[in-house]
Computed example of a mutant assay.
Amino acid sequence: MWSGDQLDLGAYLARIGYEGPVGDDGELLPDLETLYAVHRAHTRAIAFESLDVLLGRPVALDVKAIEDKLVHGRRGGYCYEQNSLLAAALERIGFQVSGRGARNRTRGDTLLPVTHAVLVVTVAGQSWLCDAGFGHQGPLEPVPLARSGAEVEQGEWTYAVREEEDGVLALSLLRGDTWRDLYAFSPQRYHPVDYVLLNHYSSTHPRSAFIGQVIVQRPGDAVRTALVGRELTRLYPDGRSERRPVARGELVAVLDREFGLRLSERDVEELGRVNLAED
């Protein structure tokens, strides 16, 4: 389903700095401990970013293209790339992985289309939400789906999944004393071909949030960091946030320092032209 047989698993594990459990034969076991370790290493190592969309480049979702970009090229990606890569790796290890399509709820009561890709992984009969592609507010680790409303602590951050009508599941994040919905998804399974369609909308439609602006984000244990347009934001578990503008001349340095993105000369040149056009 996820073309895990085409993935260079060793290169992927090296890219994310995997230091989790390994079986006696040197292979990774499809158990819960491994799932946690892979998920956390991935979200720590690979930033959420949509620079290719900003630069007008096509976003390919075949495994080899994603591997070339995120693993060998050490770039980041957005949800379709991130979770397709994670799904391929988990499938290669031996996990049962299925896709879901989610509606972003971070914009208040506005009903948005299904444009976010998430994964559901089954381990020993229990389902876990896995998502390496929601940016700075997304979970660092798998979130159990078996107990509606149960709070799950991930470092200083707390998540919960509650069940709504028609089997819809909503993921929420606690910031300060307030629960804030991140997204909601139905039980309907999504396949890689469905993500191709969603990816086309997100990367080309003029109303897509990724068109015409820099979006780079990263979750963290103590602070979550996001660069949207020219504004750098830091979120804290107690509900505080800090914002500051990023000057055009410091953009490349910020991408490196804050998000671990070391761009090629071509990327820097094209990004500079886009920013000049915005000015």
Rank of each mutant, 00 (worst) to 15 (best):
A41R: 04
A88V: 07
L129D: 08
G149V: 04
V120T: 09
F134M: 03
R44Q: 15
V143A: 07
W128K: 05
V53K: 06
L85K: 03
I16D: 01
L129T: 02
R15C: 13
G23N: 14
R44L: 15
Y36T: 03
L86T: 09
I66S: 09
R57I: 00
T34K: 12
V53T: 15
R100C: 09
Q82F: 07
N83V: 00
L54C: 04
A47V: 07
F48D: 05
P113C: 00
V63D: 06
V53R: 10
A102G: 10
S127V: 01
L28Y: 11
F134T: 01
Q126V: 14
N104F: 00
V121R: 07
V22Q: 08
T106F: 09
A102Y: 05
R75T: 12
A14G: 04
D25C: 04
L28P: 13
V97Y: 03
V59K: 08
D24R: 14
P21R: 01
A150F: 03
R92A: 15
E151A: 13
E153H: 13
E151F: 03
E151H: 06
R105E: 13
R107D: 12
L51M: 10
N83I: 06
F48N: 01
A60N: 12
V38E: 08
E141N: 14
F134V: 00
V63P: 12
L28T: 08
P142Y: 04
F48R: 03
R44K: 14
S50Q: 01
L70Q: 02
A41F: 11
L32P: 13
G17Q: 07
E153I: 06
V38D: 02
W128H: 15
E151T: 11
V121D: 07
G23Y: 08
A146W: 13
C130G: 10
S148C: 11
H39S: 13
G94C: 11
S98H: 10
E19T: 12
D25I: 11
L28W: 09
V152Y: 08
P21K: 03
L86A: 14
L85R: 02
R105Y: 09
A150G: 05
K69L: 06
P21Q: 09
A87T: 04
L51N: 05
G77Q: 06
D131E: 12
Y18F: 14
L85N: 01
S127F: 00
L51Q: 07
L112A: 08
L28S: 07
N83F: 08
A88M: 05
P30F: 06
A124C: 12
N83Q: 05
V71M: 05
G17N: 11
H42C: 02
F48L: 00
G99I: 07
A89H: 03
W128C: 10
W128N: 03
L129G: 09
S148K: 02
I46A: 01
I66A: 09
G135E: 02
D131V: 10
T115A: 14
G94F: 05
I66D: 11
L112I: 08
